[in-house]
Amino acid sequence: MGVYEELGVRPFINAADHYTRYGGSIMWPCAVEAMVEASRQYVNLYEMQTRVGEAIAGLTGNEAAYVSCGAASGIALAVAACMAGKDPVRIEQLPDTTGMKNEVIVHRCARFYEDIAIQVPGATVVEMGDERGATEAQLAACISERTAAVLTLSPWGRMLPIDRIVHIAHARGVPVLVDAAFSIPPRANFRYFTRELGVDAIIASGGKAIRGPQTTGLVIGKKSLVEACAAHGNPNRAIGRTMKVGKEELAGVYAAVKHIMERDEDAVRREVNRMGLEIRKGLSSSSLVKSVKRSGDVVSIDIDLARRGWSDQEFERLLLDGEPSIVTWCRNGRFRVKLGTLQPGEVDRMIRRLRELLCD
């Protein structure tokens, strides 16, 4: 009996994305092996954290890297670093930010659950723009003597391009952080934000598409900022003491990043294309399926749910409660399949289940 069966927890096919609430990802075998190996001996955690950071920085072509306890923890530590630096008095003072720059600017249209991490070390969130986006003038107006950093995401819609944010913020002496939790891989993005766009640091998730331990994140970028993150991190007497990363997780995320940097991305793209074609072929006989389109590793399936009398939520529930159990989301009759989360054999199992529901 496996552990999930023993506990009464039902596994499912994750066709949604690398979401935390769904377990993040399935770790690469090399990451699991590295964690098991690391679990068998004692090491100095400071030394392990330092060496792993140096190795990941070297692999990705950056000045420095720090392993945090998930991407949200990375945001908290990076914000703390921007406010207090490596000053030992200020480090212990947080989350009291008296005498420090303590405002972090974000797009109003891109507020997200994890921005609570900005507030953990005591910072205040300042919104720029509106629900549609922001302008350069609006960003400039938000910057003041209290601004500690600007935090942004890969832009969409009318969000400001990152290179323009960097230009405006750096002209006022303000560092720029990028939440890249869903932006890596491809591996080129490890360098793109920092080297080409000039951001001070990116915060990535080690447990999403990188497929390391879910409880890991990465702060990658300028050495001075990353070193300050380490000063605020575990096991120091600092805001990051509650954000522990063990030797096993450190070994696991190192192995995962190394795998990402060494794997054949062309072969990955070919496999994604094959899976997309299999889904289109497998559903071609259903009169309820109006279209099957692929963009990157996401397939969108337009379905005439009204002919079955199903709502989006009812269709999601049928997939969740069926065999196999499939988790994803459906909006306005459009069903999403994230190919990057599917494991070997799951495409065929999912197609069979969809045919049961959608074919006459």
Rank of each mutant, 00 (worst) to 15 (best):
G24I: 05
V43Y: 11
R51K: 14
G53Y: 09
L59C: 03
G61S: 12
E63A: 13
V67A: 05
S73G: 13
S73L: 05
A76L: 10
D87Q: 07
P88W: 12
E92F: 04
E92K: 15
Q93N: 07
Q93Y: 04
A110H: 02
A110F: 03
A110Y: 02
A123R: 01
E127Y: 13
M128W: 05
E131V: 14
E131C: 12
T135S: 10
R146V: 00
T147Y: 02
V150F: 06
V150W: 04
I162Q: 01
R164L: 14
I168K: 02
A169Y: 05
F190S: 02
F190G: 02
F190P: 04
Y192M: 11
T194S: 07
D200P: 01
A201N: 01
T215N: 12
T215K: 09
L218N: 04
L218I: 04
K223P: 01
S224I: 03
I239S: 02
T242L: 11
K244E: 12
A251V: 06
V253D: 11
V257W: 07
E271T: 14
L277H: 03
L288E: 03
S291A: 15
K293F: 08
D302Y: 13
D304G: 08
W310Q: 08
W310P: 11
E314K: 14
F315D: 12
S325A: 15
T328M: 10
F335A: 10
L342H: 10
P344L: 14
G345D: 10
L358D: 05
